[in-house]
């Protein structure tokens, strides 16, 4: 997750509202709890080598 903010509640509520999704409180809470984890994940794949790398969007295996 690219947001540097730790306002996980606002992040999730905004995402769900944007996408027009309604979920129960238990699932919403679970997503909120996962925000720090996915922030860490994105940090781990944001390595210097990727700065000018072309994304493998078309993914032609070589």
């Amino acid at each position: 997750m690219s947001e540097s903010s730790v306002d996980a509640v606002a992040t999730i509520d905004q995402r769900l509202a944007r996408d027009g999704i309604t979920i129960d409180e238990e699932e919403r809470t679970r997503l909120i709890e996962l925000v720090p984890l996915v922030q860490e994940w994105v940090r781990r794949i944001t390595i210097p080598e990727t700065r000018y790398a072309e994304p493998a969007l078309t993914h032609k295996v070589k």
Binding site: M1, S2, V38, V42, I45, T46, I47, T50, A53, E54, P55, A56, L57, H59
Partner: peptide
């Protein structure tokens, strides 16, 4: 995030 994952794939 998604695009960053694709750059990482490269």
């Amino acid at each position: 995030d998604y695009i960053q994952a694709q750059r990482f794939r490269s």
